[in-house]
Nucleic acid binder design. Structure first.
Length: 255
DNA sequence: ATGGTGGGTTCCCCA
């Protein structure tokens, strides 16, 4: 099974990229973030025409997550159990085949010390609590998406410039580590220990041509999923050219 | 020195 995560930064704006990408990479399951669209306005048809079932959990303007799958999508979970109606739509769980997916769009946090930063740390703690309550580590479980946090300095193009900056602060990294300590493996890192693998490059300042990137999109796998995982790669080519998202897709093979 | 670009439905906010 080929699975992938991609922050598309508006599913409607990205359709001219997303449809050919699905044709090219043919993932069995794709989890997308930042769809930025209400469910009733989600552009389902061009994706269904590619042979995908889909579930979406979105809102106007901000956030929004969706799962596309070439097989039946079951046991769909929308948001945290204690979310109100007006909560950010950042979390979507489902089962496809024998794999349990949890698609996450972690809050950006804007700036270390800000109200949004505290919201981000709190959201990561709630996610850990949700895993404890509702997920079985004995399953093939994959928690994947845009975590907006680097694990360590290998994920950062200029670690000194980014020291204690957003995506890289110690408190964010500890929150991400506590999440992984549920028993999840950072699949890309275990297969590729070298520094300099990134998934996001700012649209501003020509960051991509200079390879000024961060690795903030992750696939965190339970032991069973990790054992089945034979490859993980960043589809860096998808970040090239006009009309690209600021994130590249991350793809993994599960045997 | 607070720049720059892209997306949304904005008269600015968010990433």
């Amino acid at each position: 099974m080929r699975i992938a995560t991609w922050n598309v930064n508006s599913v409607r704006a990205r359709l001219p990229r997303l449809v050919p990408w699905l044709e090219r990479q043919r993932p069995d399951v794709l989890c997308i973030q930042e769809t930025k669209v209400r469910d009733e306005e989600f552009p389902a048809e061009p994706l269904e025409d590619q042979g995908y079932n889909l579930v979406c959990f979105g809102q106007k303007t901000y956030n929004g997550v969706a799962i596309l799958a070439r097989h039946r999508i079951e046991a769909v979970v929308r948001g945290f159990p204690d979310d109100g109606e007006d909560a950010d739509r950042r979390l979507l769980g489902a089962i496809v085949g024998d794999v349990v997916f949890l698609n996450v769009y972690v809050p950006n946090g804007q700036e270390v010390g800000s109200a949004k930063y505290r919201y981000k740390l709190d959201w990561l703690a709630r996610l850990r609590h949700f895993l404890d309550q509702s997920y079985d580590l004995g399953e093939k479980l994959v928690v994947l998406g845009d975590f907006n946090v680097t694990f360590d300095d290998r994920d950062v193009y200029d670690p000194e410039a980014w020291r204690e900056q957003i995506h890289c602060s110690l408190a964010e990294r500890e929150a991400l580590r506590r999440l992984a300590e549920f028993g999840l493996h950072d699949a890309l890192r275990e297969l590729h220990p070298e520094a300099g693998i990134y998934t996001w490059w700012d649209h501003r300042g020509g960051a991509f041509p200079k390879d000024h990137g961060l690795r903030i999109d992750h696939l965190l796998m339970s032991p069973k999923a990790r054992k089945a995982c034979s490859a993980v790669f960043v589809d860096r080519d998808e970040r090239k050219g006009k009309g690209a998202s600021d994130h590249a897709p991350v793809v993994a093979e599960l045997d």
